[in-house]
């Protein structure tokens, strides 16, 4: 038997190290991103304290005046940064998006998984996935030219008739650029993600379970309702969390239809808002012009909060989705 030459042994070793380095790069990026954002946020934390989370005014101060020193850090005179409107805007718009997306993506996934097959299933799945591939600025553009006018002229007017019952639906309906439009745009962006995940989960439900249900005389819908949905429940919640994280981090589409409100809490469903992601993108100029750099640090703190929020939802989502998958694999052994 011929021995493996030392050259190819070395090549093997070099290759293994190179791939190992490449495989560790996502971890490195993740850690570096978190570290840099955290370090840059510290001056803002010192300067603003907890006020950052519950205050309303985002005020860069007098950029041409003297600098102010407070808690060992320097900022423009009169500056005060607080992010409550952006946190509220992020949570409100993403929750609206989730509320819209839950029924739509669940029903669509059911159709994709159980009601169509073969070529039709393939085509419909591709179309739903295409929606996920559309760039967010393009969705934002569509939001400005089609969705916002429709919301202003039809949907909001109709919803405001319910104003006497639900105070948040009361008018004025404004320009169409605001919370409701942001929620709708976000819903469109997360529906394909949730649908695709849910469809895959539904296809994992063992066929024997479904056949058993049919054999008991259940209608096809009852099989879905009492067998399939309970089976994928955790995974479905995970898919929602995944979509929620996406909705909170989405920037451009929201920025284009949110109305970019500053220093203002939303008072009804149609108020202009701003989300954390959108405000970071929107405040580029202020980051460039503040000589004391405090605006940069404040935006970094905003980015930090956003990152923590999305990472938490992502952890939760991954945990829930993989848990369903594992349960399937243990039970599939019985079926097979």
């Amino acid at each position: 038997m011929r021995k493996v030459s030392s050259a190819s042994k070395n090549a093997d070793r070099v290759f293994r190290v190179a791939t190992g380095v490449a495989a560790s790069s996502p971890v490195v990026f993740l850690v570096v991103i978190a570290l840099i954002v955290l370090v840059q946020a510290i001056p803002s934390m010192k300067f603003n304290g907890w006020h950052f989370i519950y205050g309303i005014q985002w005020n860069m101060g007098n950029l041409y005046g003297a600098l102010e020193h407070k808690n060992g850090v320097t900022a423009a005179a009169g500056a005060s940064y607080a992010a409550l409107p952006f946190i509220v805007g992020t949570l409100a718009s993403s929750i609206i998006a989730i509320l819209i997306a839950i029924p739509i993506s669940m029903f669509t996934a059911l159709i994709l998984a159980y009601r169509v097959r073969g070529v039709l299933q393939w085509i419909l799945s591709i179309l739903v996935e295409l929606l996920a591939g559309i760039p967010s600025v393009v969705i934002g553009l569509w939001g400005i030219i089609t969705l916002a006018p429709w919301v202003r002229d039809n949907l909001a007017v109709w919803l405001s008739h319910l104003g006497p019952v639900v105070p948040y639906l009361r008018g004025p309906v404004g320009t169409g650029l605001g919370l409701l439009s942001s929620g709708l745009v976000l819903a469109i962006m997360i529906v394909p993600i949730i649908t695709a995940t849910t469809r895959d989960l539904l296809m994992q439900v063992p066929i024997l379970y479904r056949e058993g249900g049919i054999g008991l005389g259940m209608t096809t819908w009852e099989v879905v309702r009492y067998i399939c949905m309970p089976f994928i429940r955790d995974g479905f919640v995970g898919a929602l969390a995944l979509g929620w994280g996406r909705a909170m981090g989405e920037t451009m589409a929201v920025l284009m239809v949110s109305g970019s409100a500053m220093n203002l809490l939303p008072h009804n469903l149609y108020s202009p808002i701003s989300t954390m992601a959108a405000v970071i993108a929107d405040q580029l100029d202020s980051a460039l012009t503040d000589a004391s750099q405090m605006a940069v640090h404040a935006l970094a703190e905003l980015a930090l909060i956003l990152m923590v929020l999305t990472l938490l939802t992502n952890f939760l989502a991954r945990w829930l989705v993989t848990r369903t998958g594992r349960r399937r694999s243990t039970k599939a052994g019985v079926a097979a």
């Binding site: 991103i33 954002v37 993108a281 956003l306 999305t310």
Partner: peptide
Amino acid sequence: GVPSIVIGYF
């Protein structure tokens, strides 16, 4: 899952 704007700001 890290928001793209956070990556940009980083």
